[in-house]
Write a protein that binds this DNA or RNA. Structure first.
Ligand code: SF4
Ligand code: SF4
Lengths: 136, 136
DNA sequence: GCTATTATAGATATATAGTATCCCTAATGG
DNA sequence: CCATTAGGGATACTATATATCTATAATAGC
């Protein structure tokens, strides 16, 4: 079990956009170079973020991606869910009802992690990221 | 990102062994049938649990698997780690030092989940599982 | 309008990990 | 000795993630 690289790319891109000028569009070319990943691949990932309403895109010259106005409320969990989906980490094909101890524990465990990630929002990082000149 | 089926099988087997007679060996055949999985495949999974010191095996007639004496202290996290390994869920190829906000958050998030799973021990389930006649 | 630029989408290829089976060997109880 | 059972190697199959290529659509600037 691992977080996908796509999630990694998405997180880095979001963090970079937070640190960058919020009103200017930034091309996928530049974003991809920074992370040593193919532009077309990153594009597919960012399109998911667009559809999830976190960023907006503009075609044509001087186009690219930028944060939406409501970016401060976006959480790590939002980004992860946009890329990896929202399905439960633990799946059994059956549903043996409320007596199932395993699902009870596993779902609650996942919930612990998600609660933490839900409370880590872009706004929390905004100040820090400007100061520290993020590396990637 | 998903927990593997192997982890699912391991958890179910452990739970079953906890509910079963603790001194008697139980063959992989029986354990596999219960979960509709190939005996040889389940065998490989259970061997990992043996090597992790959670259960012990016996070859030959009337052989099989049974819990070790210290079973009560075994946690969900122990089982998961035995099957899936202990590597971090989030991996980037670089290490950009303590300024890295992303790793900070992701590692802490994983830690939240692991702490919960570490505190869910077999002993906590022992009483409940006997009462409720587990379904699988 | 024309052209350069840039995002989007489909098709396709490659890599990796998970899942599973087969078969042989080793150990052990009867 | 024989039946039974775990362990391990080799192999096959599957699913998913990763990545690239190409074509299309939209848009800014001239
Ligand atoms: S016992 Fe729980 S985890 Fe296991 S198959 Fe049934 S519902 Fe799923
Ligand atoms: S910024 Fe952090 S998460 Fe990103 S590559 Fe560097 S160390 Fe890894």
């Amino acid at each position: 079990m691992k977080f996908s690289k796509a999630t990694n790319y998405a997180l880095h891109t979001m963090l970079f956009l937070v640190a960058a000028a919020p009103d200017k569009h930034i091309g996928v070319q530049q974003l991809a170079e920074r992370q040593s990943v193919s532009p077309t691949y990153l594009s597919k990932i960012l399109t998911k973020l667009v559809k999830a309403g976190m960023i907006e895109s503009a075609s044509g010259a001087n186009g690219g991606y930028r944060l939406k106005r409501s970016w401060e409320d976006i959480s790590f969990l939002d980004i992860i869910h946009a890329i990896e989906g929202t399905a439960s980490l633990f799946d059994c094909d059956f549903n043996h009802g409320p007596d199932c101890l395993i699902q009870l524990v596993m779902v609650e465990a996942e919930d612990e992690m998600e609660t933490y990630l839900k409370n880590k929002k872009m706004s929390d990082l905004a100040r820090t990221v400007k100061l520290s000149k993020i590396s990637l």
